[in-house]
Amino acid sequence: MRIHDVVLNEEREAIKNFLKTFDLTYEEDIDDTIMVTENGRIIATASTSHNIIKCIAIASDYQGQNMTSLLMTEIIKRLANKGINHYFVYTLDEQVPLFKSLGLRPIVQTMTLALLEGGGSIQSALNQLKEDHAIDNTKKAAVVINANPLTLGHLHLIETAQKNHQHLLVFVVSEDRSVFPFKARINIVKKACKKYPNATVLPSLDYLVSYATFPKYFLQKEAMIREEHAMVDVLTFKNYYMKTFNIVKRYVGEEPISAMTNMYNETMKKYLNQNLIIIPRKYLDGMIISASTVRKHLKNDQQSEAYKYLPQATIDFLESKEGHDAIRALKKRDTRH
């Protein structure tokens, strides 16, 4: 039996075919893959995409022989080598006991899948965050934004929420996969929120992930993937963020154009009920304000068009050297984010 890294294209093709026999797809955002072979035959594989462990499969005649322990040990060592000590596994519900026995902790479970973590615990991470920002136990409202980049629409949401509550928490998605780096995104939000003394800007940490990062390889239908992603995200928010910070209302913008985000809002409504407040989106000259429209304009060199939708803090950033770099990166990308 040999364990080795998948480096050659033909090896990767072999892994793809191996996964196919389990109805699993090899995801495009994978950085590293390992495989276990015996007499030249692939018997097991696992992959990572940044801090997410995915595409784990074991040949049926090798199941029940602790192959998962072997794969996980190897993967954890490789992650540590890259400086990653906090990692996640999304898996089917029935596999939870197996991963629990390997020292991973379940975060949330839906009817279909579960999210587990290793090397950290969501509760202690949130307690730490609360302590670092000296947040008290009074009732609060919250918004979660990616702010890629921050628009007047986001600010409208923040302004409405802070007007109705004594204290507002603004979570900025920490995941660094957007065109605008996390540091830039949160700094812009902090600057723009200075005028609201009752708003605290916080990183969302690694727990609220975008749809792009959410593993899809073991779920077959697009609609189901969407719903599962929304459920995991909403349950994590409800069970941990709302409890830890005493959040009583979450504000979101309505989604009149994107059916996908609208479905996300529907799922949120189902789980948060009266704790969710959907506010109408802000329009400018009959056009809805959205970060994706802004990115489209920036991409097409229509700076002044984009600026119409942006607060001063975002414009200042775009005018800086870092801002120029971000726009250049944006022009090279062809994905939605």
């Binding site: 322990s69 040990t73 954890i76 000590n85 020292g103």
Partner: peptide
């Protein structure tokens, strides 16, 4: 970087040691 030693095989343990601002011991065990 952190150092990882051991395995997740039965009767073994996987130990990760990393620099930290205090002393912290976290144990996951069946």
């Amino acid at each position: 970087k952190s150092i990882v030693v051991g395995s997740l095989e039965s009767s073994d343990c996987l130990i990760t040691i990393s620099p930290h601002h205090t002393l912290e011991i976290v144990i996951e065990s069946p």
